[in-house]
């Protein structure tokens, strides 16, 4: 497919899935009925269902997916390593730990923005640790091993915090924070996360030219006038803001940032700058599709999104490791 056609096609796909997401749900609402309730505000109860329950769910699907896809593409471009993905390298689990701390200490109840902010804080710490350990080239082994350690630690601390909570339901929610879900989120969550995500997207979007230059190597990029230190800072903050806010409201959804850039890379002619926008759209499509699927497969079970993304993502991850190994990196 020509790159010029790719973005409109992806945008169309996202719009289609967004609509399907809006009309999917346990409440028996007809297609016309639900859309007219959403747009024109007809039918009191139907309006409540559409505007307060399904719209935030679909919006969060787009926002969370775009954040994860974009962050994955940006990190892979910067580290020149296809395995760099927020979920695999521990960024999402650290963000989840931050969010859990904000909720359980009561900080989020006292000050609403504390939730996305501490998700951001958790993500920031892990991205910094990883970049410090992995070095400028992001050697696969270091990256993955550091990711395993950071994920395990963040997951264990999160389980500890939730087990110590006085709330009897809290411990049962470890699985939500590890696998992610969009069930029963409201517009409150959309408004909490959106500013941080938008900030993160804006920062990551500015990296395009630098990432293209980096494909020629660090020295060549430097000669082209790219300031690597500044680029790295923007990347860290952008990833932390978008992934941190996404995880704070939807839990840790893995593999989106791995699968989407991998599938789209050949279609954009291996230009990292083009891959950024394409991956944002692709990520949105993937999370929307997964969220539609969990509602169709198990309507009253609140199946977690991470289950589906891992079913698609983990085999691909193994395949990538296999290829990386054969390439002798």
């Amino acid at each position: 497919m020509r790159p010029a056609l790719l973005l409109p096609a992806l945008a169309l796909l996202v719009a289609g899935l967004f609509t399907v997401s809006l009309v999917t749900g346990p409440a028996a609402l007809g297609l016309g009925e639900s859309l007219s309730a959403l747009v024109r505000g007809e039918g009191e109860a139907a309006v409540l269902v559409m505007r307060e329950i399904r719209l935030p769910r679909a919006l969060l699907g787009v926002m969370v997916g775009a954040s994860l896809g974009l962050a994955g593409a940006a990190m892979q471009g910067y580290l020149r390593n296809p395995l760099a993905e927020p979920g695999l390298i521990g960024v999402t689990s650290s963000a989840a730990l931050g969010a859990v701390l904000a909720l359980q200490t009561g900080l989020a109840a006292a000050f609403a923005l504390a939730l996305p902010l501490s998700g951001l804080g958790g993500a920031l710490v892990s991205v910094l640790i990883l970049l410090m350990l992995a070095g400028p080239y992001g050697a696969s082994l270091t990256l993955i091993l550091a990711g395993i350690a950071v994920s395990a630690l963040a997951g264990a601390l999160m389980a500890l915090v939730l087990n110590l909570s006085p709330n009897p339901y809290a411990a049962a929610e470890i699985v939500f924070w590890l696998l992610g879900s969009l069930a029963d989120r409201s517009m409150v969550h959309v408004w909490l996360a959106l500013p941080f995500m938008a900030l993160g997207w804006t920062m990551l979007a500015t990296l395009g030219r630098g990432l293209d230059a980096l494909t020629l190597g660090e020295d060549a990029a430097g000669a082209l006038g790219i300031r690597l230190g500044r680029m790295r800072l923007v990347l860290v903050l952008g990833v932390a803001a978008s992934v941190g806010a996404a995880t704070a409201v939807a839990g840790a959804i893995g593999f989106v940032g791995l699968v989407v850039p991998h599938l789209l890379r050949p279609l954009v002619g291996a230009r990292p700058s083009r891959l950024l926008t394409a991956s944002a759209l692709g990520g949105a499509a993937m999370v929307l599709a997964a969220d539609i699927a969990v509602r169709l497969i198990a309507p009253d079970r609140d199946l977690k999104l991470g289950v589906l993304t891992a079913l698609v993502g983990a085999p691909l991850f193994l395949h990538l490791i296999w290829r990386t190994r054969r390439a002798g990196i």
Partner: peptide, 29 residues
């Protein structure tokens, strides 16, 4: 059993009985 919020909203009951809250925070509550 599990009742989706959507279904409850559409059914418009005359009374919703919810339990008292425990301390701490949970997504369930």
């Amino acid at each position: 059993g599990a009742l989706a919020l959507e279904e409850l909203v559409l059914a418009r009951p005359d009374l919703v009985v919810t339990p008292r809250r425990y301390g701490g925070q949970s997504r369930s509550e």
